[in-house]
């Protein structure tokens, strides 16, 4: 049986502007869904590569989130730490369809036994 490639996780209007919400994955890594000023939506593993800080609680600016624990800046597009810091957080593909947020199923379930 073909598994659907995308998971519908809810309507875009449930995301605060310039903010983020969380999406726990039972048995896996919690995901953070970000909403930028331009209305774009991105998804990253909700754990900073530095000390696993919850990126969903950081300040979103442009296409970057600043981790709330130690101010690492992480690109929402690539998951890479910016500036002097080195590290990378998994990116989950996102698309918007009819006002609904769809995320890549395989990436979202990565690591789930």
């Amino acid at each position: 049986m073909m598994e659907p490639q995308w998971l519908d996780i809810g309507p875009v209007d449930q995301l605060p502007a310039l903010g983020a919400r969380t999406l726990p994955v039972r048995g896996g890594q919690e995901i953070a869904i970000f909403h930028t000023a331009n209305g774009e939506v991105y998804a990253l593993a909700n754990a900073c590569p530095h000390k696993a800080g919850p990126l969903s609680q950081g300040i979103v600016h442009d296409t970057t989130v600043t981790c709330p624990l130690h101010n690492w800046r992480i690109s929402l597009v690539t998951g890479q730490a910016l500036g002097e810091d080195k590290g990378c957080v998994p990116v989950i593909p996102v698309k918007i369809d009819g006002g609904r947020i769809l995320i890549g199923r395989a990436e979202a379930l990565a690591g789930v036994a």
């Binding site: 998971l7 726990p24 995901i31």
Partner: peptide, 23 residues
């Protein structure tokens, strides 16, 4: 309330055709 509640939760089930979404 959006700041405190999850957007949704993913619970993979044995029937992979229908991963459960709980808003």
């Amino acid at each position: 309330y959006k700041l405190h509640q999850h957007l949704a939760e993913i619970r993979p089930t044995p029937t992979p055709s229908r991963p459960v979404m709980e808003l």
